[in-house]
Write a protein that binds this DNA or RNA. Structure first.
Lengths: 199, 199, 199, 199
DNA sequence: TTGTAAGCGAGACGGTACGTCCGGTCTTCAT
DNA sequence: ATGAAGACCGGACGTACCGTCTCGCTTACAA
């Protein structure tokens, strides 16, 4: 019986979705993941931390994975946009360095890794992670490379998807395995795979 | 009345560790993982499937992750040995193709992916997975490359770990993301990263 | 195209209490109780069944118990009035037989039993049930007997409340326990307790 | 993470049912009912109060009603046995007075009333309450009266069940309605219904 | 004629309890 | 000593209602 609570009880928004609650959930999930890992990321803990009823979470998200997808999509568009300006080899290189740093340092990078991991454990997660994140981002990346090819900036010997796998794979794998990917490695990959010497 | 002892009831061994039970647990874990995914891989389910008491599992393995590690190490040494004979660029290429196929088709490959995933969720898993699998195998792979360099078969421009990350990363990432890594991609990586043209 | 207004949508009444909604709630509560028992009698279910917003219920009734009290009082005055005409032993006997039948067959009888039951679980219900139902009715019954005594129709050996308890108790208890009270029992009680033979 | 608990953790009993836990549950249920009413009698509260896991309750009792039935049967056999010795009118009278007091003062009396109430709300409760309590006890009471008739101690004008309803009904109804049944009422009922004057 | 005030259906909100599942620890008993 | 069996505490799951609230609409009455 928590009758001693004196503060005036944040009024809720009525019959429209409560944006405050929505953000509280997203941030609580993010924080819990970063602070205590995916294992501690239970719906109950999120609700507790966000100061929100469990039902409010279940009303809007079918699973905690969708919560993470929401935060990942927002943050990844914000912190790691795929370059859209004039496509140069340098902008691609910069994007890849940014990606490595995103995975290593940004909370949203942990979210990405957690989702990629959870996708191995649960087919539904895999499907949704592909639909909502991997496929759209892969599309943007393909565009980036295609435009750079059109502009004559790069001339990869492999198909677009293969090149992207070859560039992104080591970065992601390094983050998963806990090793740090050297800047040199990324640079070498860019040099070797995107601008094969013409001879 | 001959039927009082209705079924033969495999007798257990008394005071030595029961090898039958050990194998039953390993196989049950493997089967459950392949058939129903990591999410269905509970200790209770393993015990049920193996026809073994839960306590028998906890007596010998501190967690289900160690069970998977046991199966992974046995199977991976058996199905995907790191080449130890005369080191050639071709044997390395063969090893990488074998690795891709191992991840795609072999049940033990699913175990590897599951452990790599679980390592993202749980620091203990990460530590043990590194200690027992990643580090030893990385050591063998480093030896492989070092011997090939000594033999003049390859001449990578990057450090050993970076090269391995660059070669293995795309394969693992492809398996994680569900895409199929083309043989061509592996070949190109081998060509570009291990035998840079001397120009 | 006459069908744009697909269903007529009963308009509500504006700034006065909506009598249609009031009756819908009372009937919904009654029906739910009879059809699915008190356990299914939730405010949400009543609102759903009555086609009424939950808030409309909470605006007018402090609890579902008050809804039941409203229906009980209306129905019990209508279906089981305490006789007020010339008081005879026979009218008392008839009232008791009517009471037994009311409990056994009338939906409002189920409401009475449910409230008597709920009063055991919740002191507020007990208080309100006494105030609004038991006490007034007991008063009418006491008047009935008092007038019959004045008229020389009966001569009970016990106080009024005790006699009423002795007459009504078995009927109620029979209904609660699910047994059927025989007409003979009621008749015997009336004979023995109201008209003790003078010798 | 309640890691500060210093007390040595009552060890549990292994693969046999834990009698300590069983009694803790029964007493917790009883206490909660008496102290805070049936409304506060949730399975979670019982578990909390008994210091027992919820699952331990669900393992042994299908519902909280069965818990109450267990306590009622034990206590009611102990505190209010149906007389079995030489059957006299006086022993019957004593039993009825004891019954009135049991309902008014004994915690187990509250349990009986709560179950009788809950039986009105839920058919399953009704069925089990009849099977496990009402029917057996009614059988004993019928035996008591039958023996007393055989012994010439009483000579009721009604059938056994009707007599019992007439005697017990007012007592139970009084307890339900919160009124106190006078000793005089019980005595009068015994006199009038069991020993009709022979004229 | 037009505020304005109240009632209305709808439904989101913070909570509590439900009954189930599994984790990891413990004890008993047969082998 | 080992292993099968299974009870135990703990705690998360996803659902159902609770009682409160705000929204946008409709209607009736008063200015």
């Amino acid at each position: 019986m928590p009758a001693t609570r004196s503060q005036p009880r944040r009024p809720h928004s009525g019959s429209r979705r409560d944006e405050v609650a929505r953000l509280a959930v997203l941030h609580a999930a993010d924080d819990l993941l970063v602070e205590h890992g995916f294992g501690a990321l239970t719906v109950e803990a999120i609700a507790r931390r966000a100061g929100v009823a469990k039902q409010t979470i279940y009303r809007w998200w079918p699973s905690k994975v969708e919560i993470l997808l929401d935060t990942l999509i927002e943050d990844s568009d914000k912190h790691l946009p795929v370059p859209t300006g004039k496509p140069t080899a340098e902008s691609i290189r910069g994007y890849l360095h940014g990606f490595a740093q995103f995975l290593a340092d940004d909370p949203a990078g942990k979210v990405l890794l957690a989702l990629l991991a959870q996708a191995q454990h649960d087919p539904d997660t895999a499907r949704r992670f592909h639909e909502r994140y991997l496929v759209p981002r892969r599309g943007q990346e393909r565009d980036l490379l295609a435009h750079a090819i059109d502009a004559g900036e790069i001339a990869p010997a492999l198909g677009l998807d293969s090149v992207i796998d070859a560039l992104v794979g080591p970065i992601v794998y390094g983050a998963l395995a806990g090793s740090t990917i050297s800047r040199e490695l990324v640079d070498t990959l860019v040099d070797d795979l995107l601008r094969p010497r013409p001879n």
